[in-house]
Design a protein around this nucleic acid. Structure first.
Lengths: 132, 132
DNA sequence: ATCGACCTTCCAGGGCACTGGAAGGTCAAG
DNA sequence: CTTGACCTTCCAGTGCCCTGGAAGGTCGAT
């Protein structure tokens, strides 16, 4: 009873064959069984795994982080504690990024406002452009 | 009357010799004069230019974008119109990023809240971890 | 003469998650 | 038998901005 070939898995999971092979090489997917001809032969469980990987990606986790979670699970443990830690860290990072981005936005908006008010002719060569 | 060597320029501008050589190769800085020994010999004007590059970087412009502005200026034109366009585009991008990041933050905060409330034992293997 | 701080060029890597392409094997249908 | 869709591996490149390191030349002071 043979399972899915890589193209079917790609289609079913909404990714590409390239990506699946990359995930395997990266260690996110276990080495797939092979047909006599050497084709990868996947079971249905790979779809759950890919779904989890997708959820992790959607939460902005890196493949390396997702891999850690998967490894814990593969060792038979519940990765929940690790996941919550990851989420906490992620929140901190995002809050920092939001703050930085808001600050940058304000700065650029200021520059833009000056530019709207000013006269381009007042740019001096040593400034290159005084609007920046 | 010789000017500054690359190390002095690096120090005066708060960057590194590596970066200065990279900027030259990338086209942000004109090829510097050379001393008889082949050392780069910079005039004071390079500091204005580096200051502008720094301002552009601080506004989140890419080196390629900064290079465009510098090219316009080098052709003797006022790059102000181009700069304001760049700033407008930059604002749009940042607003999109802010919105995406805020959405992501909300999503992760939700996940995290579920995790705080739930029981890790309810994770099933096909979920890998239900907190994600 | 020699030391150490500087300078030169050139090549390679790194982080992240793929993506492209070449060269070739396999399979089912017509 | 041929076509075309699929599969395989391996290598290299993308984008961005540097950064590291090797191998060697130059300068000023001791």
């Amino acid at each position: 009873m043979s399972g899915m070939r890589i193209g079917e898995v790609a289609q079913a999971s909404g990714t590409t064959t390239k990506t699946l092979r990359y995930y395997e090489e990266f260690g996110l997917l276990p080495a797939a069984d092979r047909t006599p001809a050497g084709y990868r032969d996947y079971g249905l469980d790979v779809l759950d795994r890919l779904d989890f990987i997708g959820r992790g990606q959607a939460a902005g986790l890196t493949l390396a982080q997702i891999g850690q979670v998967l490894d814990i699970r593969d060792r038979g443990q519940a990765p929940c504690q690790h996941v919550t830690d990851l989420l906490d860290t992620r929140l901190e990072v995002i809050d920092r990024q939001l703050a930085e981005l808001a600050q940058l936005r304000a700065k650029i908006a200021d520059l833009r406002e000056d530019a709207a008010a000013g006269d381009p002719a007042t740019c001096s060569p040593e400034d290159v452009c005084r609007y920046l």
